[in-house]
Amino acid sequence: MYKKIIWPLVIGSAFVLSLLFVSGFIVSIVISGNDDTAQTETEMDMEIPESEPAEDMPPDGASDILVLGDSIGFGVGDEENLGIGERYLNLLDDDSETGKTVTNISVPGFESSQLASLIESDEYSASISSAELIILSIGGNDLNNLNLEDTATLTLAFDETLNIYKENLTFILSEIRSINPDAQLAIIGLYNPYSDDAPQNAPFLLEWNHETRLIVNSDVGFAYIPTYELFDYHLDEYLSPDDFHPNGTGYQAIAEILFRILN
């Protein structure tokens, strides 16, 4: 009796399930996309933004402060969504009405290599060439994406990442200089959001900042903005709830030190 029931059950369910799986399988192939169509689609998409900024640029191009780089430049974590650029401008405006504007083309998550290719693409050359002050924040993601397993591999990986970063930074700075020979550049140094949890990693960060500083010192129009010491003693006050990005107070502190160094 039992044997009589199980056979139709097995064959029936196997049939239904096969149909289900085959259809799911076909859908997966369609979703994950034939590479050729995906490519043409993206290429078409890519063409539009390329022409757009060129048209939009001239009115915006007159902005005086340009913020370039990663999430710190973008202002992630800032409750008032001002970021370093706007906060710096507010400090300037306290002294005198300047009527200057800020353009922020930072992309959260950017690594130095991505910024290098963005600058190489000439997409934002107009913004760069018209800017008076360029605030640059980069490198944090390079360093943060290192997979820290043990000390030996970490040192190796760190050295490699640092070398790539140095090349990229040199390239970015020289490229910006060739587009705009007069602008003042401010490079935001890295702070250590993990100084409570992992104090043993601090030497790496210090070496990183030191190398950045050496590159930045190669030109009089470049300023290095240290944030390490600033954050080290005020981690609780300056970090946003994600424990990585600064909060409004943190950004204000960076903007103030920037203001003090440049003026």
């Binding site: 890519m46 353009t103 934002y124 994600d242």
Partner: peptide
């Protein structure tokens, strides 16, 4: 709190006109 913060960041980014369409 964390999710809302992330959401408002993303919304801010989405409004940034310099971000490519895709």
């Amino acid at each position: 709190g964390l999710t809302t913060q992330r959401l408002s960041e993303l919304e801010e980014r989405s409004q940034n006109e310099f971000i490519p369409e895709e």
